[in-house]
C-alpha cells in the first residue's frame, strides 16, 4: 500500500534525533490517531541550518517526518512555512488516502517549531 519511496524513508529515516540547543521546537499530536511528532530546528539568519525529528507513529508518520526535514533544510523560514502536507506526501510519491492525515502531522510540526522560534526571538 506504500510507495517504494515511503518504505525507503521509513526504513532509513533521515535526521532522526534531537537538537539539544535548538532554536525552535514543535511538538504536535495527531488528534485522529494519537500519534506524536517533535521537530527540532537550528536556524541562523532566518535560514534552517538543521532539522531533526522524533516520531511516535505509523510508517507514514515516520516517512513524512523524514521527508519533511529533508525538504525544509536550507530553506528560509518563510519558504519552510509554505511546505504543505501535500507537498511532503507528493515528494514521497503519494500516500494512501486513509494515511493522508499522517502527513498533516509533519506540516504542523514544522509550523509549530517555527512559531516557537519566532516567539523565542521576540522575547529576546
Amino acid at each position: 500500500m506504500y510507495t517504494e519511496k515511503v518504505l525507503e524513508h521509513f526504513r532509513n529515516p533521515r535526521n532522526v534525533g534531537r537538537i539539544e540547543d535548538a532554536d525552535g521546537v514543535g511538538k504536535v499530536g495527531n488528534p485522529v490517531c494519537g500519534d506524536v511528532m517533535v521537530m527540532y530546528l537550528k536556524i541562523r539568519d532566518d535560514r534552517i541550518e538543521d532539522a531533526k525529528f522524533e516520531t511516535f507513529g505509523c510508517g507514514a508518520a515516520i516517512a513524512t517526518s523524514s521527508m519533511a526535514t529533508e525538504l525544509i533544510k536550507g530553506k528560509t523560514v518563510e519558504e519552510a512555512l509554505r511546505v504543505t502536507n501535500r507537498a511532503v506526501a507528493e515528494a514521497l510519491g503519494g500516500l494512501p488516502p486513509h494515511k493522508m492525515h499522517c502527513s498533516v502531522l509533519a506540516e504542523e510540526a514544522i509550523r509549530a517549531a517555527i512559531e516557537d522560534y519566532q516567539a523565542k526571538r521576540q522575547r529576546k
Binding site: Y2, F10, R11, D35, F56, C58, G59, A61, I62
Partner: peptide, 14 residues
Amino acid sequence: EYVEGESLLLNLDF
C-alpha cells in the same frame, strides 16, 4: 511501550 503497531508490523514484514 513507546512505539506504534504499524511501524512494528512493517519492520517485521521486511
